[in-house]
C-alpha cells in the first residue's frame, strides 16, 4: 500500500501507470552494478521514481577525475566510498526508499549470490569481463538485465530477458580491448537514464522492452541507431539453456 505522501510524491506518474504500477516499483528490488558514470544517473532516476529497494555495488572510492560525470558524487566526497556517497544523495532525494550499499568487486564467484532475490539488474560496469560474470548470474537467476556502456561521445544499451532474448554474450561475444576511456558526462548521462527508463518500463509492464536489439548512441551526430541482434544458439552463456534454446514461446 502507498502512503499519502507517496501518493503525492508520485502523483504525476501514477497518472501514467496507476497505483498498481507505483506499488510494483515500491515492492521491487533492483541491483545496480556500478556507482559511476552510468550508475549515478540510473540510480538517481530509479530512486526518484520510487523503486523501493536499490542495491548499489561498487568497490571504488570517489576520485576528482570522476566528477565530470558521476553526478551523485560531489567535491566533498573525494576519498569516500562511492556506494556511501551515492546512498547519502539518493536518500536525501527520496527518504521513502531503501538503499543497500555493497563495497564489493563483482566476479564469477559472487555475482550469482549478489543478484539472487533481485527483480532486475542494471549493468553500469566498466569492463566486459565483469559484465560477462553479471550477465551469466542474471541468466542463472532469470533476472532481466539492462546493459549499458559508453566511451567518448558514444554509447549503447540493450534489455535482456534471460531465456527469451539475446544475452550480452550473444551480442558481444568477445570483450573489446581494454583502455582508459575518454568520456563527456552527457554520454553516460543519456545511456544511464535510458537504462533507468527501460527498468521502469519493465517493472511497471509499460510499453515494449528493447530486446533483441542494441541501441547505439552516436553523440557526434546526435543520432540513435538500432541494430537487430539475434540469439546465438551456441552462445556459451545462454545457448545451453533449455528454456532458452531459441524455441518460440507457445501460446
Amino acid at each position: 500500500m502507498l502512503t499519502d505522501s507517496e501518493r503525492e510524491r508520485y502523483s504525476r506518474q501514477i497518472l501514467l501507470f496507476g497505483e498498481e504500477g507505483q506499488e510494483r516499483l515500491k515492492s521491487s528490488k533492483v541491483f545496480i552494478a556500478g556507482a559511476g558514470g552510468l550508475g549515478c544517473p540510473a540510480a538517481a532516476y530509479l530512486a526518484a521514481a520510487g523503486v523501493g529497494h536499490l542495491v548499489i555495488a561498487d568497490c571504488d572510492s570517489v576520485d576528482r577525475t570522476n566528477l565530470n560525470r558521476q553526478i551523485l558524487h560531489y567535491e566533498s566526497d573525494i576519498g569516500r566510498p562511492k556506494v556511501v556517497s551515492a546512498r547519502e544523495k539518493l536518500l536525501s532525494m527520496n527518504p521513502d526508499i531503501r538503499v543497500e550499499p555493497l563495497a564489493v568487486i563483482i566476479s564469477d564467484n559472487n555475482a550469482s549470490t549478489l543478484v539472487s532475490g533481485c527483480d532486475l539488474v542494471v549493468d553500469a560496469l566498466d569492463t566486459f569481463t565483469d559484465r560477462y560474470a553479471l550477465n551469466r548470474a542474471a541468466i542463472r537467476n532469470r533476472i532481466p538485465y539492462i546493459h549499458g556502456a559508453v566511451s567518448g561521445f558514444d554509447g549503447h544499451m540493450a534489455t535482456i530477458i534471460p531465456g527469451e532474448t539475446a544475452c550480452l554474450e550473444c551480442m558481444v561475444p568477445e570483450a573489446p580491448p581494454r583502455s582508459v576511456f575518454p568520456v563527456v558526462g552527457t554520454t553516460p548521462g543519456l545511456i544511464g537514464v535510458l537504462q533507468a527508463h527501460e527498468a521502469i518500463k519493465q517493472i511497471t509492464g509499460q510499453g515494449e522492452p528493447l530486446t533483441n536489439q542494441l541501441v547505439l548512441w552516436d553523440g557526434k551526430a546526435s543520432q540513435f541507431t538500432m541494430i537487430r541482434v539475434e540469439r546465438d544458439p551456441d552462445c556459451p552463456a545462454c545457448g545451453g539453456d533449455s528454456r532458452a534454446s531459441g524455441r518460440r514461446r507457445e501460446i
Binding site: G34, G155, P176, L214
Partner: peptide, 10 residues
C-alpha cells in the same frame, strides 16, 4: 554496411 566496435566504459 555498418561497423561498430562496442564501447566498454561506464
Amino acid at each position: 554496411v555498418a561497423i561498430y566496435p562496442p564501447v566498454a566504459g561506464g
